[in-house]
């Protein structure tokens, strides 16, 4: 009925006890002659009562790890950024170690500047900031992760597959875990490693980046050195702290492991 549809928008406030007196009167008058609406509102009221009664049960608790990470976000945001805006800050070495907050600020500007000229450099800047951010906030794993298991879990959760290079004790390369990279629109797998005691990331982009070719390209962004290449419809990047002489060796291992 047209009248039922007209009054429907008032049902929520009626059930919540927030409807204006005139609206309540109009609804009461309607309900006296419309059992369908009367029962519908009774059902909605019963649902509301059930949800409210179980409100505490329905709520979830954040983990201690998440609390710690969010606390760390607070500290990072509190750190004042350095003087920014000079193009040279982005371009030249030696890189002066920056605080987390400064790195984030510079990365935004870096992506903007390089995005106008070079898509690979812009991608490198995005990945560099994600690399720094994630290692700043991530907790070390409590168990040694199994690469194959992680790959299966990733495929189940995300709907696309990745190959995860395993730890290489001889190279002091240790797999720490895998997470989805929000900074790159959530379509990138971030494989986290420790290499010779330093953070090392391997990024796998779900689709091939249009500016990245098969030949690995060396990129230096935000104090990080990166090798970026595409293969088999995916784009890969290895990211670690600047001036790593053997980064090609690690990239080669990643290439072989992901074939």
């Amino acid at each position: 009925m047209a009248e039922c549809r007209d009054l429907e928008s008032l049902f929520a406030s009626y059930v919540d006890g927030d409807a204006a007196p005139a609206d309540c009167a109009a609804l009461d008058a309607h309900f006296s002659s419309c059992p369908a609406c009367r029962n519908r509102v009774a059902g909605e009221r019963a649902v509301r009562a059930a949800v409210v009664a179980q409100r505490e049960k329905l709520r979830s608790c954040a983990s201690a790890d998440l609390r710690r990470r969010c606390e760390a976000s607070r500290q990072a945001a509190r750190t004042p950024p350095p003087v920014a805006g000079r193009a040279g800050v982005f371009a030249r070495k030696p890189w002066v170690p920056l605080s987390m907050a400064a790195t984030l600020v510079l990365a935004v500007a870096g992506v903007f500047l390089y995005g106008l000229k070079d898509g690979v450099e812009a991608l490198g800047a995005q990945l560099a900031v994600d690399h720094v951010k994630c290692f700043e906030f991530a907790s070390p794993p409590t168990l040694i992760p199994d690469a194959k298991q992680l790959a299966r879990e990733w495929a189940d959760a995300r709907g696309w597959t990745i190959k995860i290079p395993e730890s290489q004790p001889a190279e002091q390369l240790e797999l720490l875990g895998v997470r989805r990279c929000i900074s790159t629109a959530g379509l990138t797998a971030h494989l986290m490693y420790k290499w010779r005691g330093q953070p090392l990331s391997v990024y796998v982009l779900k689709s091939q980046h249009p500016r990245v070719g098969a030949m690995p390209r060396l990129v230096e962004q935000l104090g990080q050195e990166e090798l970026i290449w595409s293969k088999g419809g995916r784009t890969y990047a290895v990211v670690t702290r600047g001036r790593a002489p053997d980064i090609e060796q690690i990239a080669d291992y990643v290439q072989r492991s992901t074939e």
């Binding site: 928008s9 049902f11 929520a12 406030s13 909605e44």
Partner: peptide
């Protein structure tokens, strides 16, 4: 308000 009502239903 409409979504709340319909969601409850």
């Amino acid at each position: 308000m409409s979504r709340i009502s319909r969601g409850r239903r």
